[in-house]
Nucleic acid binder design. Structure first.
Lengths: 233, 233
DNA sequence: CGGAACAAAAAGTCAGACTTATATGTCACA
DNA sequence: TGTGACATATAAGTCTGACTTTTTGTTCCG
């Protein structure tokens, strides 16, 4: 996924980024560029570039005469796809997955409503195609094929909403869905009710029924919340 | 706002970032590090650090033998607060404001619902305090004081939701609200109906009525959408 | 016409010297 | 004893120049 080896500084980030987001250095910890450069066996210039990137993600702050200070979690750019991947790869994965699922539950229904009003006929066709693909792979342990169509479905919804902020969450949704299929529970075939809901959403969008598309999508995301035991008492 | 002069590379970014996000260099344009370094009268190392930051925002891509390529808008990390500020400062401001307001309309109601269930008593108190502050400054052209309490109100809601992704949007909401007050319309006193809604949301949260808090907040955000003429036909 | 060898271009890397800001300790003086 | 000015050490910041590596496009030969 993404670009693993885009230079030495990227190699450093692949180690340092996950370490910081995993909490290996508590907030307030101070690192020194020179020491880091030695530890990773790279030149200072390369290490400086890595620090600059971490700084742009608000994971650290570099100050003269002090060093590179690790910032508290509340400062982090948690929407940065790179940060999301790092955190999903670490021990905070479950909590991260919950946060993202709650975000989905807020965004996707609204996106579906907008998609019902704005989707092109091509996007409507894509959507029904995805839904049919989900149906076709909803039994017989064809989890990978199902996932593929599921991800595509939600991507189309988010894109068709016409809102760039929503569209940009396509990758996040993909990570969440993939995570659910690969790491977490779901050894069995997907819930038939969820499959039906996807088909109905596709129908609602095609029928330009925004209110219905939104309501049905809300049902889908509430199902996702329940899977993670995030629910009203 | 933020940190204007955090080194030479920051100074370069303050010029180059807005230029790119404003579309001064169409997607696919190729820049060369050396040329940029000369143009900004900085050393190559400084320019390289700036490029690394732009790369981490997915505004550009740096490839050997090719140069620094400007990426299409759909690749940008539009959730990066820095990118948001750059775009809000440019000619794309109205579109950006619309995108963010739609995002608000999706997130804030759900956040309010969660806040109704999870807010601490201190947060409830803060909320009513903010709402009262809005009421107190809702007439007599006390726009700045009103804005202050409005921003604080929405920040508390987002924070009290207990979701870090929501909490991180506090800054975005602040930018949107500030933008509406300062640049755009709203020379008159705020809509009394909106003020009342804020008070009612505070009441609903204090009363732990999640459904009501969500519904009322949805009314607020729908008002914001209507102000920008984003509405169902 | 196609593939291999070659050359040029631009980013990438490194090492070393120098500059600058600043946290902190010191010391004189009140 | 407390306080302010001043000195100093420290780590980041900057610059330069040489060198390496990858990639692209061209050329030449089969």
């Amino acid at each position: 996924m993404s670009t693993p080896g885009r230079g030495l500084h990227g190699r450093v980030l692949d180690t340092l980024g996950p370490a910081i987001t995993a909490g290996a250095y508590p907030a307030g910890s101070v690192l020194r560029t020179d020491e880091l450069a030695q530890r990773f066996e790279v030149s200072r210039s390369v290490m400086r570039e890595a620090v600059r990137v971490l700084e742009s993600m608000h994971l650290v702050e570099s100050r003269r005469r002090v060093g590179v200070t690790v910032l508290p979690e509340c400062e982090w750019n948690v929407y940065d796809p790179q940060v999301i991947r790092w955190r999903l790869a670490g021990s905070e994965r479950p909590r991260q997955l919950r946060s993202l699922t709650v975000l989905r539950s807020a965004v996707e229904p609204v996106a579906a409503g907008l998609a019902a009003r704005l989707a092109t006929s091509e996007q409507c066709a894509e959507l029904t195609e995805c839904a049919l693909g989900m149906v076709a792979n909803s039994s017989g342990h064809r989890l990978e094929e199902y996932l593929f169509h599921d991800v595509a479905f939600h991507r189309v919804i988010l894109t068709a909403s016409g809102n760039e902020m929503f569209a940009r969450l396509g990758g996040v949704v993909a990570e969440v869905l993939a995570g659910r299929t690969h790491h977490d529970v779901m050894f069995e075939d997907p819930d038939p009710a969820a499959v039906t809901l996807h088909v109905q959403v596709a129908e609602a969008v095609r029928a330009r029924d925004a209110e219905r598309a939104e309501r049905l999508t809300r049902e889908i995301t509430e199902g996702a919340l329940q899977e993670l035991d995030i629910l009203a008492p």
